[in-house]
């Protein structure tokens, strides 16, 4: 399977790459246009700040490629900040990609970031929850998504307030938690995404 992991230039993809290696994948790490290869699936990792990351993607010339992949319905998984990136606007004026309608405000809590393992209440829509019996995942974040369309939400978590932590819209998948740091549950979720990518790849090659 040809899988891309986007590198925003901070070089801390260790946990995500290790998790994908354990699943038998050897993803292409894409930092700039010269790294671009044909892929069947993309992962946006979750480290950095919204504004900085969009600027990096723009500066490194990756935006047209990513926009094309999205138009071709290539499965894309956004993790944490990687999911927030799909939306329009962050709290501090940072702009996202604007692929989905909604904002990225700060959480309202006395202790931030929200760090640690937390339960996810999942919706009954099919999502990447297959084979995950008790959905508990590892979170590290200060901002959260506020999508305009409630219909794209696939999971909710509580930390002093309730907020959406999983979304699906066409070929876009997003999770606020870090599957690469979430033990066996996280491994299964990544595996489920790889199965989506595999199905898409088979369809595309037909």
């Amino acid at each position: 399977m040809e899988l891309a992991v986007i590198d925003y230039g901070n070089g801390n993809l260790g946990s995500l790459l290790a998790a994908l290696h354990r699943l038998g994948q050897n993803p292409h790490v894409i930092h700039q246009t010269t790294d671009i290869v044909p892929v069947e699936g993309v992962i946006f990792p979750g480290v950095g700040s919204l504004e900085e990351v969009v600027n990096r993607l723009r500066h490194n010339g990756l935006l047209p490629w990513l926009t094309d992949l999205r138009a071709q319905s290539t499965p894309i998984l956004g993790i944490c900040l990687g999911m927030q990136l799909f939306f329009e606007q962050g709290d501090e004026g940072g702009e996202g990609l604007g692929w989905l309608k909604g904002n990225v405000p700060s959480l309202q809590a006395p202790v931030l970031p929200h760090i640690g393992w937390n339960d996810v209440t999942v919706t009954d829509h099919p999502f990447l929850w297959h084979n995950i019996v008790r959905p508990i995942f590892y979170f590290v974040h200060t901002y959260r998504i506020q999508p305009h369309e409630a219909a794209i939400v696939r999971g909710i978590t509580d930390y002093y307030e309730s907020f959406p932590v999983a979304i699906e819209s066409g070929s876009l998948y997003g999770v606020q938690f870090h599957p690469e740091l979430s033990g066996p549950n996280g491994t299964r979720l990544l595996q489920n995404f790889l199965e989506v990518v595999e199905t898409y790849g088979n369809m595309a090659s037909r």
């Binding site: 946990s15 740091l181 979430s182 491994t187």
Partner: peptide
């Protein structure tokens, strides 16, 4: 640390 990361599925 790299060897540990290859096998660990939790934050380090």
């Amino acid at each position: 640390i790299q060897r540990a990361r290859e096998v660990l599925t939790i934050p380090l």
